Computed example of a mutant assay.
Amino acid sequence: MFSEREMVASLVSRFPSYIGDDAALLTGADSLSWVITKDLLAEGVHFRTRYFSPKDLAHKALQVNLSDIAAMGGQARFILCGVSIPAGLEEYGRHFLESLAQQCRTQGIALVGGDMTRSCQDFFISVTALGVVLADQGKKRSTAEKGDFVCVAGKIGDAFLGLCALEGEIEGLCSFKDHFLKPWAHLAQGRWLAQYPGVTSMMDLSDGLWVDLDKLGQASQLGSCLNLDDIEYRDDFLEACQRLSIDPLEAFLTGGEDYSLLFTVKPEAWDDLQAGFLRNFALPLRRVGQMVPDLGVDFSGKRSPEVYKFKPFSHFGEGR
């Protein structure tokens, strides 16, 4: 079976200086580095036009790319967009592109080019985003250290619940649906964290906490341990899980597309970081675990034996 992890590892071995993080860092001028990333959105895989308006799809296509720049501590500057539009969706495609241009202008980002073609069947979007970061502040996945606290800025599992509600055509649960349809990249928070001396590594949460934390650990040649007894769920999260017949722990560990920031911080810096972050931002911040020497994600707590029945996300259905 085709394995995304094996394919990426093969490419990283060929270009180790560039591939392996949320975005590539390329040396620029005046103590700046370029931050460059690309994301694809494929109809039927990442979205359905029956519940994504052109405006919401443009928002998501932009924000998921900006989230990669946020995870590197960067400031977004430019994007390029390629689209492949099938027969019957020409008007949808026109509204998508007009909305994308408007949202770029609103956020001070320039749309500087791209490509457009006809699709034989589905709607496809490819966005490349470019940003800048001070050369000594760009954050990577490979620099976590043993004993670091594992932390998340933003929500965990909400987008997954929104997706399930949309797919199941469940009424209500609007905040969860909006979190899936219209995520926001945490650019200001990413820059703040990147500048904080105790933060050692960072990435965004796109494939779920379990999968993404494993990626961060692999890059840093470390593992991590999560104490499941320490997880606190909001009341509305528990109510949504009950309506959707979803185990809250499964949503928390495996639900993707939240685009929160996953980062590691030195234990002695955590208290001051938490206080400073909460003074500056109205965004949830929590400590979820700790980096350990042995590779992989380990679990402790009463429900730890149960987690292995959950199926973490994979693009091609490959096992862990």
Rank of each mutant, 00 (worst) to 15 (best):
S99E: 12
W192L: 13
A71V: 07
N280C: 12
S99M: 05
E4K: 11
V12G: 00
Y259H: 11
G296R: 00
D298H: 14
F180Y: 15
G208A: 02
L100V: 01
G296S: 02
Q274S: 06
G256D: 01
Y196N: 13
F160H: 13
L283Q: 11
A71Q: 06
G82N: 13
F15S: 08
D115S: 14
D68G: 06
D207I: 03
A275Y: 06
S206E: 04
A70H: 07
C81P: 09
F313D: 05
L173V: 02
G154H: 15
E318W: 03
M291Y: 04
D39M: 12
Y92T: 10
V292D: 11
V83D: 09
D148A: 09
R105M: 08
K215R: 08
G131I: 01
F176K: 03
G296L: 03
S224N: 03
G131N: 02
G217V: 11
A42Q: 10
G190N: 02
F299H: 02
G74S: 13
D30N: 14
G301A: 01
L285Q: 10
Q63T: 10
H95V: 11
A42W: 14
V307K: 04
L166I: 02
L25K: 12
L173S: 01
Q121S: 15
D258P: 04
Y92F: 15
V133S: 05
L130M: 13
D122M: 03
Q137P: 06
V297E: 07
H46F: 03
R5A: 15
G131C: 06
W210N: 06
D235P: 10
L32R: 14
K309F: 07
S220M: 05
K177G: 05
S142M: 07
L285M: 08
L261P: 05
M7P: 10
V127E: 04
D136Q: 15
A23C: 08
F263V: 01
A144F: 07
G113E: 01
G162W: 02
A24K: 09
V288W: 12
V45C: 08
H59N: 13
Q137I: 01
P197M: 10
V45K: 12
G317Y: 04
E171Y: 09
D178K: 12
G131V: 04
L228M: 09
A23Q: 03
F277T: 04
D21S: 08
K146R: 14
I69H: 04
L213F: 09
V35K: 04
R5N: 14
V35L: 00
E4A: 10
L187I: 15
Q189M: 14
F310M: 12
N227I: 08
L40C: 13
Q137E: 13
C225V: 13
H46P: 00
A58F: 01
I246A: 01
L134G: 13
F277R: 07
T128I: 12
K177T: 05
C104M: 07
P305Q: 09
A42C: 11
L253A: 02
W184R: 14
L295Y: 05
F277K: 06
Q218S: 14
A159L: 08
A87M: 07
D22R: 10
